[in-house]
């Protein structure tokens, strides 16, 4: 399988702009337009779109507040909310004709997993400091350090491959059913696609949230210092 077959569209010097990136840009554009539309409509007299977005953000904030300490909710919220919204949009965009979900590309899911990995350490270091954050890898014993490291790597890999595998398999199954059964038969599968897209987005975001919360609460005895650092 060459790169053209995987959806490569054009080259920018040595850089190859893939279909995944283009789709991601379209999703970004959509979110940007949504934010612009919301800003232009004003906040003094909330519209139904405004109310819907507020409901979504409140729901996300509530979910975040259930997991992370209260003082860190507003700090974690943008990253987790963006992750949830982006993955959901990326999963659902595959339902559109001639479009492919960016999350069926391992590069995209790996990038997202890498971002989760980095953000986990970023929030952990901000909460406890570098020493405090690294210290929890040696707890309760330094013997567990390799296992912690392996756990960090594997869970990141699992995060990337889980999303990629689910979305890839879902699209492949839909394609196969479409090829075999033809018209109208894939409709239930497309509905399953919607459900699967929502579930995968939720799982990905919730796992990221749990990892971040784990980093924030890794040093329970230093919780008082953590609050100050936050």
């Amino acid at each position: 399988m060459n790169r053209e077959a995987e959806g490569l569209v054009w080259h920018l010097g040595d850089w190859v702009i893939s279909n995944t990136v283009i789709t991601t840009w379209l999703i970004m554009l959509g979110f940007g337009l949504l934010a612009l539309l919301l800003r232009l409509s004003g906040y003094q007299k909330p519209s139904s779109l405004h109310n819907a977005l507020e409901a979504v953000l409140v729901a996300i904030e509530t979910a975040v507040a259930d997991v992370v300490p209260a003082a860190a909710v507003r700090r974690v919220l943008p990253f987790v909310a963006t992750l949830w919204l982006f993955v959901l949009a990326a999963n659902l965009v595959g339902l559109l004709p001639e479009m492919h979900a960016p999350t069926r590309d391992l590069s995209a899911t790996a990038a997202l997993a890498m971002l989760v990995f980095l953000s986990t350490h970023w929030f952990g270091i901000r909460a406890h400091g570098l020493g405090g954050h690294l210290k929890h890898y040696c707890q309760p014993s330094v013997i567990l350090l390799p296992f912690h490291i392996i756990s960090e790597i594997t869970r990141t890999l699992a995060l990337a491959i889980r999303l990629f595998g689910n979305m890839m398999s879902l699209e492949m199954a839909a394609l196969l059913v479409l090829l075999i059964a033809g018209f109208l038969v894939p409709v239930p599968l497309l509905m399953l696609h919607v459900v699967e897209a929502v579930i995968q987005a939720y799982i990905f975001g919730m796992l990221a949230l749990i990892y971040i919360a784990g980093a924030l609460e890794s040093n329970e005895p230093d919780s008082s210092n953590r609050e100050e650092n936050l």
Partner: peptide
């Protein structure tokens, strides 16, 4: 794994 896509996706996400 396409590193260009990987890096661009990271950048895209941060921009988003």
């Amino acid at each position: 794994l396409d590193w260009t896509t990987f890096i661009l996706e990271i950048i895209n996400f941060l921009v988003l």
